[in-house]
Design a protein around this nucleic acid. Sequence first.
DNA 1: CCTGATAGAATGAACATTCGTTCATTCAAC
DNA 2: GTTGAATGAACGAATGTTCATTCTATCAGG
Lengths: 212, 212
Amino acid sequence: MPRTTAQNEALRTATRETVQTAAIRVFARDGFTAASIRTIAAEAGLSVGSIYRHYATKHELFDEFLVQATTGLAAAAARLEGPGSPIDLVREFTTAYLADLAADDGAAEFSEVVSQGFSTDTPAGTRARLLAPHRTLWQAFSAVVRRGQEAGQLADGDPDTMTVCYFATLSGLTTLRLALGHDVNLPSAELVLRMLTAATPTATLTAGSDDD
Amino acid sequence: MPRTTAQNEALRTATRETVQTAAIRVFARDGFTAASIRTIAAEAGLSVGSIYRHYATKHELFDEFLVQATTGLAAAAARLEGPGSPIDLVREFTTAYLADLAADDGAAEFSEVVSQGFSTDTPAGTRARLLAPHRTLWQAFSAVVRRGQEAGQLADGDPDTMTVCYFATLSGLTTLRLALGHDVNLPSAELVLRMLTAATPTATLTAGSDDD
DNA sequence: CCTGATAGAATGAACATTCGTTCATTCAAC
DNA sequence: GTTGAATGAACGAATGTTCATTCTATCAGG
């Protein structure tokens, strides 16, 4: 008997992880279509054939990423539905996201692939598959915002619209961070949270400019 | 002599515009690499060969888009450097951007291609070519923010960081708008502007939650 | 300790397809 | 009839994918 089953299992999962990490990096850099299997193989330090031993197609490689993304989004939604005051929940959520972005692990790349899948819907159907868990997350966040408003902790405004605007900011920051690297000044959580916590600016700030 | 020179000229520019519009739409939908010349030709209602009569390569087709983007960004920066109070300038800028996003002309698609070029740097060199006019725009915006702070019209904070956060929001909203269409609730200018105008939330809002 | 047999992982040349691109030909307007 | 725009079949390069082959780590038998 050559290798034990357990050893083969460990080898397989280790290589799968190597491939997955390399794939996400290349997907984030080049986009799904421009990312070639040969490039991913080179990034992983493996041959083309090895990729196909672990993933039947390029789409299946992307599918595993989609599963991870769905799981992560569901976990984030669950945390928002957990205990805690609204202001603490949104601050903790924002701080954690920005910390991931600032760190040099693959979190930013991961988010970037999600963002690309959303915008280009490549491969076909990606957008729909990402939309479902995103809606769950958005609804959870929106509910927290509503609770925060009722508690007087958060600013007025339609919770759904505020949620969209908030997540648009996080998404945009992710893209900028990945494109510009350390040159970009990541904002503090407090700055991002202003759109949720801001007291409505006093009328005197805008007086005299409503003549359009 | 068959057609007059003027007629040929008109035909040429008309077709060029048709091709350019179709190309931007396909670029926005599929990304530069996945957008094939055959798809662009079909979208424009022309043959493959006709595309190549007007643009030597796919890259040149994209280049014309880059020139347009650079011009537009420079124009936006110039407007910010023009007359007007800081609060009016940023509000006008935001309102105009959101109006373009809400309209069904190609403005959102245009911005989306810019965003993709930024994030994937495809074709190679696109990011650098977009970065220059963006920096100009960001610097102009940052200067307005600083003036607004000095005039007591805008909230405190590092102007550069606030600018990055602001444009990240606009970029993220563009992606969401194009991905979800009319389902997305576009925020009001006032909501986006909160991160710039918000009075710092009073300490009572955060009291008792700083125990992490 | 060595050695050879073996199961399964790793390899990369080869294939069909699709891509960007070309160009001989056709079409349309004067 | 002439000029230039429009066409689409065809070509080389690159892509995703396959599979016959090689490598590698293990352990029974000496």
